[in-house]
Amino acid sequence: MDLERYLLLSAVLFVIGMYGALSRRNIITVLMSIEIMFNAVILTLVAMSRFITPAAARLPGADPADVAHWLLTGQTLAVFIVVVAAAEVALGLALVISLFRHKDTVDVTEVNLLRH
């Protein structure tokens, strides 16, 4: 039950983030919800990294000393997600500021320039 409860917790967080991203008007809250979703995914990866046997260690005749470092594949992936999330939030907020300058609003339902 150790792995499952972390996965269920991150599923709950992901769903909360998705609900926020779909249902809020303020674009900054939408960005915050996306950050919650990113964090849920990172939590999944770290939990997997802690509790799942890496594929290399499942091969017949695998020496634990040689495959031990594959245990941290999930954590490595999490590091990359943090990098991408930081880039995403920097660009997202730049877009928000630029939108606010041009349209004087942060309401996602009022931004319909591309609608025919």
Partner: peptide
């Protein structure tokens, strides 16, 4: 920072 810079018009945080 973004909240501070865009505050004033965004009264509240209503749902869509």
């Amino acid at each position: 920072f973004a909240v501070m810079l865009t505050r004033g018009v965004s009264e509240g945080n209503r749902g869509t």
